[in-house]
């Protein structure tokens, strides 16, 4: 049986891992490769590295960092941030990334999703969507949550699926950093509507929240950062908790 995935997210700024609360107040906490290896040993199923400043400052992710991760870590990892052109995707693939995540660039140029999926396969492409409930409408944001777009969450999720996205990473900006649980209702809507895997992101504060994301939110994977980085939840105890509640997880 396919296991539900637990994914620590490492936000990278200037080559170091950081985690912002509600996308601000960045705090430096470590080396991306060391942290990735540590999480892999802990039983993480996958890793996500997001260069959170790449789009904002128009910087490219360092292929060197990706290569170091690929050399040292024996589980799959996704790299996001600053993928604006098909050449960026190609460079990350060549450096050893298993998947790339595209967010702002897809909003500004939706055809990029088609191009990447066609060139490298849907399995290589995660589309990350940051959204926030504004007067009952789930508005999609870009540039790390700085700019509102005219896109609506569910329409945009369907569109990127049709264009070839292999997976959707949905972050509720309302839930992110608050540690009160994931946006399960919205997750379930995406998961029920689209025939591709959905990664829950934003809001993990306790093991119950992961259970809810899988049960109510019907997520295929759950991503979290600070609860793991600050050891508030360890992956082995989280997996034991999920297993005890009949969620299939990799031992």
């Amino acid at each position: 049986m396919l296991a539900k995935r637990i994914i620590p997210c490492l936000d990278v700024l200037d080559g170091r891992v950081v985690k912002g609360v509600n996308f601000i107040n960045l705090k430096e906490i470590g080396d991306p490769v060391e942290q990735g290896a540590w999480y892999s040993d802990q039983g993480a199923d996958e890793l996500v590295y997001l260069d959170i400043t790449a789009t904002h400052e128009k910087r490219k992710l360092l292929a060197g960092l990706v290569r170091r991760v690929a050399e040292n870590i024996n589980i799959p990892f996704t790299v996001g941030g600053g993928v604006n052109h098909i050449q960026d995707a190609d460079a990350l693939l060549s450096a050893g990334a298993d998947k790339i995540s595209v967010n702002s660039a897809a909003l500004m140029n939706p055809a990029l999703v088609d191009q990447i999926a066609k060139s490298f396969g849907s399995q290589f492409l995660v589309v990350a969507i940051d959204a926030k409930n504004v007067d009952g409408r789930w508005v999609v944001y870009r540039n790390g949550g700085r700019l509102a777009t005219d896109r609506e969450l569910f329409e945009w999720a369907s569109e990127v699926w049709m264009r070839g996205a292999g997976e959707i990473l949905f972050t509720s900006m309302d839930h992110d950093g608050v540690k009160n649980g994931y946006a399960c209702r919205e997750l379930a809507m995406i998961s029920d509507t689209l025939p591709i895997p959905v990664i829950a992101s934003g809001g993990a504060g306790a093991p119950e929240h992961f259970l809810e994301a899988f049960r109510e939110g019907k997520a295929d994977a759950a991503l979290a950062a600070s609860v793991f980085h600050y050891n508030e939840i360890t992956i082995p105890e989280l997996k034991k908790y999920l297993k005890d509640h009949d969620i299939p997880v990799r031992a």
């Binding site: 049986m1 396919l2 296991a3 399995q123």
Partner: peptide, 10 residues
């Protein structure tokens, strides 16, 4: 099922 089949399986 969802396609691709992606993740860890026994």
């Amino acid at each position: 099922g969802k396609v691709p089949h992606m993740g860890w399986n026994a």
